[in-house]
Amino acid sequence: MIAKRIQPMVFQARRLYVELMFQVMGRALQAVSEVDASVQNDARALPVGFLFEMMVMPYGSRLIVEHVGNGRFHYHGTSAPRPVDLSIQFKHIAHAFLVLSFQEKTSVAFANDRMLVDGDISYAIRMTRVLNRLEAFILPKLVAQRAVKEYPANLHLPEKLVSAARIYLKVASNFVETVRA
C-alpha cells in the first residue's frame, strides 16, 4: 500500500535525476572537448555542424551537442537548431536511469538493446568513446569502472584530478551563465 503511494514520487525523482544528468553530461561534453586532446581527436572526424542527440523515448529528457570544428563541442540544451545527424535513444526512462546511475555500463546497455542508434554507426562508436572518456575523468575510479567497459590504464590520478577539476569548473560556469541568461 505504502509502496503504491510513494511510487509516483519515485518516478518523479527518477525523471528529475535523468534530466539533471543529461544537463550535466551535455555541459560536460562541451567542457571535455575543450580540455582533452584525445576527445578532440575523436571529435575531429565528425563533420563541422554535426548534431548529436541523446534522448529518452518517446519525448523524454534530451541533450544536444554540436561539433563546431577543431574537435570542440557546443551544448545546445534540449532543442536542436536543425534535424540532428545522430541520435542515441533510450527505449525507456528506466533504461536511462540504469545507465546514468551507473548500474549498467553504456556498452552493456547497447548489448542489452536498451538503446537505439539512429544515424551513422561509426559516429555513434566515436561518441560512445567520447562519453566513456568523459566518465573516466569526472567520476571517481570506483564509479567509473561501473560505467565504462574498461577503465583506461593510462589515466593516472594527477591527470584525472586536474582534468576533472577543469571540466567541473566549466560545467558550473555554464550552469551559472544559463541561469543568468
Binding site: A45, S107, F110, A111, I121, S122, Y123, A124, I125, R126, T128, N132, V148, K149, E150
Partner: peptide, 13 residues
C-alpha cells in the same frame, strides 16, 4: 576497425 559498429560488443575495450 576502431569505428566499426561490431567493436561495441567486443568483451574488451
Amino acid at each position: 576497425a576502431l569505428d566499426d559498429g561490431a567493436i561495441m560488443f567486443n568483451p574488451k575495450e
